[in-house]
Design a binder for these strands. Structure first.
Lengths: 254, 254
DNA sequence: TCTCCTGTTTTTGCATTCATTTTTGGAGCC
DNA sequence: GGCTCCAAAAATGAATGCAAAAACAGGAGA
């Protein structure tokens, strides 16, 4: 395959990129292809509703149609593309309504994660969230969106991880992928009030987590996601440029 | 294909079975096969950890390996089977721990559904839930497990439907399918206290829904699922026979 | 100029084929 | 009797081939 992170024969199987990859079987061609295609789509290389032509992708990734079609079926079941009978695959359009739905469900899942995390979280995990929180606060003070987004995403993933529920984790990540396709390169400076509110909500989260108050953390997370949603939709509907200053893998929202 | 509800050429595309089917594309061979295979597995025709031999299934369903393998990839992404590289597919074992995780996530999703439903539910939907509730109460009084389970499942699906969130609905159904593979033919008479408690929880649900108290309905649903879980695990661990009196599509729990 | 029809090209869906890997069966040996 | 090793058989992973459906292009007719 051409554009895939081809494992060099002598190199270690897991490249030291430090990125926590999906535990999916990476040993088969269709498995690697699935990951590559998902990234390709999630990173926004194909526009809403665009055709996903098999032939082109086969050439691009240097594989035959069989494994590619298998990967497409899986991506369809993950909700990233639509398969039209006899008419090929299309990038599933993300209308504001779809984004709204996704944020609600992810809010529900994060709320659950918060509740479970409070039951099971260990001191070390709380410490890690605290560390990330204060690091994020630093970025907030410096108006560093790049760092802020990265920490923000890490915090939310840490809370989901602390719930110690693999099913939850996988469901959450699958839905995240759908959402990550949009380019919310939100200039939060233009939403400074929202940014400050998000920081305060994160303060409250950390406090609830420290006290292991599951119900409160659950509520905060759900409402936090709802507020996120408003900001995101605002940006999404308003701008298609988004001042594209952020690298693609950091297109989270506040 | 042999065992599939073969669409006769002259017949309408959607058979009037009255059953609300998934909105997935049913027009292609792999699409029908996916539904058929999913049902076949969900209905418990294959044991935990059993091999899923391609060749046998090809003969059983009368298709070649290509569409079958496509369907298997999708079922793996849905969590029903595991795909071992070069070693074929296995029915994903449902250990008590997995069941525990699934119940927690479904509890979170139902809690979300309750919250959203209270924001959007219409009078007619409440009336329908009420009708189902009292019908279920009748079955409870008559100790009719069959009817009770059916109504119970209908109520929970109605609440999820009332949330009017297609993403939530699909996620919920996918996880439900994983769980439905277990045969909880629980004889709730042996858990009469649990059965009564479940009825009371349903009373509280209906009350919260009537008052459109999202937070309370959310809490009740989450805890209701937790309690269900205990009963289910109790049954699951204790008996592998399950007195198999119930038809397979009614293996819900109280 | 627009619409409709038709023949061609492209694309999709599925079956078949080929290369590898795994599994199986048994002979030989301890 | 049990274990190891090796070869045959079977199963899997991927590529190719073929029929059918859809998209496209061009021209006739209004």
């Amino acid at each position: 395959m051409n554009e895939l992170p081809h494992p060099v024969p002598g190199a270690p199987a897991t490249p030291p990129t430090g990125e926590a990859e999906r535990p999916r079987a990476p040993a088969s061609l269709h498995g690697e292809l699935l990951v590559a295609l998902r990234d390709y789509i999630v990173e926004g290389n194909l526009a809403d509703g665009a055709r996903v032509p098999e032939r082109d992708l086969c050439e691009r990734f240097g594989v035959s149609r069989t494994p590619l079609r298998e990967a497409l079926k899986v991506l369809a079941s993950e909700g990233l593309i639509d398969l039209l009978p006899n008419r090929g695959a299309r990038i599933r359009p993300l209308r504001p309504h779809d984004i709204h739905e996704l944020f609600d469900v992810m809010g529900g899942l994060e709320a659950l994660a918060g509740r479970l995390a409070c039951e099971k979280v260990e001191e070390a995990e709380i410490a890690e969230v605290e560390r990330l929180h204060y690091e994020m606060y630093g970025y907030y003070l410096r108006r560093d969106l790049h760092g802020y987004f990265r920490c923000n995403q890490a915090i939310h993933l840490a809370i989901v991880a602390a719930a110690r529920n693999a099913t939850l984790d996988e469901t959450y990540r699958t839905l995240s992928a759908r959402l990550r396709r949009t380019r919310y390169a939100a200039n939060l400076d233009q939403h400074r009030d929202r940014w400050g509110q998000a920081m305060r909500e994160h303060e409250a989260m950390l406090d609830a987590l420290r006290r292991r108050d599951g119900r409160e953390l659950s509520d905060i997370l759900f409402l936090h996601l709802r507020n996120k949603q408003l900001a995101a939709l605002d940006v999404h509907q308003g701008a298609s440029d988004g001042a594209g200053a952020l690298p693609q893998d950091e297109t989270s929202v506040a």
